[in-house]
Computed example of a mutant assay.
Amino acid sequence: MKKRQNVTIKGTKGGLVLHLDDNCSYQELKRELDEKLSANTRTQDDRHLLPVTVNIGNRYLTDEQMEELKELIRQKKNLVVDGIESNVLTKDEAKRQREETEVVTVTSIVRSGQVLQVTGDLLLIGDVNPGGSVIAGGNIFVMGTLRGMAHAGCNGNEQAVIAASNLKPSQLRISDCINRISEAWQNEDKHDMECAYINENHQIVFDRIQTLIKIRPNLTRLEGGH
């Protein structure tokens, strides 16, 4: 009977990928990994460092175990750990992902000097007065007049958008892009709901909200839909 392989080594243009079985014991896995890496490095050119990506599948490893695997790989003179990939999410990671994707609905008026900040998307039912600020890791939707400052995608999300029933902000930010609004534009009479987003030239532009269907189709994509 052929022995089950707990460690599979695959060479790529970017280095090595180690696929580690997630059903065997951790100690058994370490022992086979050490044996196979030792045999593999004897055939490699010592003058070049090889990046190694480790895929541990559905196995949960503690921080200490991850460091053990990294150290085992580093001991092979021409290998450097590029990263460890896992299908397992910790509770903290799952919580963070949920916070980043959830829509927080707030019914309020953001007055001058106030700052309203959320991790994910913000749906504000109310106005943002001059001097007030709304900040979100995702998108910002204001069902009211936006006259203060709005910063969407504050953690670097350039796909984030800002939309308001009446868009007359003092300043808009999306990711690291800033658009300061002229007083004349703020005083312009508008009737359509508008949005702002980063275009292909890395600039914040304004348009009718209907544009979002084409430029940000994921905003309207329902889970399990088409």
Rank of each mutant, 00 (worst) to 15 (best):
E102W: 08
Q159S: 15
N199C: 03
T211A: 09
R31E: 15
E32C: 10
A184E: 15
N139V: 06
E158K: 09
I209T: 05
I56G: 00
E100C: 03
V7R: 00
E28V: 10
L69D: 03
M193E: 11
Y60G: 12
Q210V: 11
V128C: 02
P217W: 09
I84F: 02
H191W: 05
Q210G: 10
K3H: 01
T211K: 13
M143V: 07
D45V: 15
N201C: 07
T119P: 05
E100Q: 14
Q186I: 05
D63L: 14
R221W: 06
S86T: 15
M1P: 00
K2Q: 08
R111E: 09
Y60H: 12
I213Y: 11
I135E: 07
C177M: 13
T105A: 12
I140R: 01
E100H: 02
L89A: 14
E102N: 10
S38T: 14
L212R: 01
M193S: 12
I162T: 06
G153N: 07
D192K: 13
N40G: 03
R111V: 06
D21G: 01
V134D: 03
R42W: 09
L222T: 14
T41L: 06
I213D: 12
C195T: 01
T8I: 14
S38H: 14
S86N: 10
V106R: 13
L37W: 07
W185S: 11
E158W: 08
R59N: 01
L18M: 12
D63P: 03
E100Y: 05
D207H: 08
A39E: 14
I109G: 06
G15Y: 02
D21Q: 01
E68R: 08
L172H: 01
N40V: 11
G132C: 07
E223N: 13
